[in-house]
Simulated scan of single mutants.
Amino acid sequence: MSDWDSDAKNASPDGEFVRDTSYIEDRIVAGLPAGSAPEQQGDQTFHWPVEEGRYRLMAARACPWAHRTVITRRLLGLENVISLGLAGPTHDWRSWVFDLDPKEKDPATGLHRLREAYDNRFPDYPKGITVPAIVEVESRKVVTNNFPQIPIDFQTQWAEFHREGAPDLYPEELRGKIDKMGAWLFKEVNNGVYRAGFAGSQEAYESAYHRLWDALDWLEDYLGTHRYLVGEHVTLADVYLFPTLVRFDPVYVGHFKASRNRIAQMPNLWNYLKELFALPGFGDTTDFREIKEHYYYTHSDVNPTRIVPVGPDMSPIAEPHDRDRLGGSPFAEGTTLPGPVPAGEEVKNPEPFQEL
């Protein structure tokens, strides 16, 4: 999503942070002829055909909402089917910038700012210029930025392109539970840290703070007897929680004032996080340096000096975990793990303890 500092002003009269959750609700779906034009489904909604090479996932290592789509794409083996464009961690109100690439332009589309893709389809697009976004490469137009739907569609609509042995992250018999858990996580945890960090009054902050920690305490207890959030293996529910947990100690504790304690001080959540971090798709898509640079630099309302802190030392996240005590396994029998990260998609700052 867009995390620039105008978000901090998006508050109700009592100071509570209220996120704009209106997105481009187009979807890329199976069953339409490759090469065909999008089919209109409603006044402003279209379905686009699943097609290898037609689309590019625009993301940023810094953004937790984009991170979940990057993880899902990698776990399912869609790297050679849907390319990946990565914006840099810092930007201004005009939108994310592809300043990690030569000449500060995305190499596949020539876009400098992500806003260009939105304006190419919707001139003077009035809403947030958010990641993740899927862009049609040839037209350089945004297709969708509906972040809750993108991982689900990667699993359900792109199945013909999944790598052999890819996990089922959204098993049909568990979808109701995954959806329910995902909705709760978004409300109480994923967006809960923002509700605390962007609160516009002391009362709103304290309410958000206690609500967030109530949820984290519940997760700590739950993960004491459950290895994963839903079922016996990793599902999309775990993909939804990981980006928030992995950002918590380096950013949310200080920057968003979620300061009761670190995740590293909560044994079940910490070991759960360590297990996920060790899996291909999770730790190898995480860049702590870009995460910290984004939050501490871009949210100038929260951090006017834009000083990025040194630390904390995140190297213990790579140490062994204790989750085997609960039985089960990350993936079902017959599942194979992703291979090496494709050339050019490696995180630029791979060490979890790498300082500025």
Rank of each mutant, 00 (worst) to 15 (best):
P49I: 04
F98E: 04
V189M: 11
E275I: 03
H91M: 03
A278T: 04
Q44P: 00
R54Q: 15
G200D: 01
P320V: 01
R68A: 01
F186M: 10
A11Y: 03
P280W: 00
L185I: 14
Q44R: 08
A60S: 15
A199T: 10
G197D: 07
S22K: 07
V253L: 04
P304Q: 05
D249S: 10
V81I: 15
R68N: 01
E138K: 14
L229F: 15
R27L: 10
D238P: 14
Y194F: 14
Y252K: 02
T285Y: 04
R113T: 11
K141T: 12
P250F: 13
W158F: 07
Q265L: 06
I134R: 10
G31W: 06
P49M: 02
A59F: 09
Q149L: 07
V70M: 13
R262P: 01
V70R: 13
Y118L: 13
S95G: 13
I71R: 03
E346R: 09
L356A: 06
Y296F: 12
R74N: 06
L276P: 06
S6C: 00
L245R: 01
E79F: 11
D14P: 13
D106L: 09
N145G: 10
D284G: 06
G176H: 12
V97E: 14
P243N: 00
G311L: 10
Y23P: 01
L216R: 02
E293S: 09
F288A: 00
K9R: 15
P38L: 03
E173K: 09
P167Q: 12
V302A: 07
I134G: 08
G85T: 06
W93P: 05
A87M: 12
L75V: 07
P304I: 14
L57N: 07
L356P: 15
Y296S: 01
D26K: 12
L76D: 10
V246I: 14
P132T: 01
Y222M: 09
Y118H: 10
T72Q: 02
L212A: 00
E293W: 14
P320K: 00
I317T: 03
A166W: 03
I28H: 09
V341N: 07
G85E: 12
H294M: 08
V246W: 00
V347R: 03
P102C: 09
W158E: 00
Y272A: 02
A59E: 14
S2W: 09
E138M: 12
Y295W: 08
Y205R: 15
V189E: 08
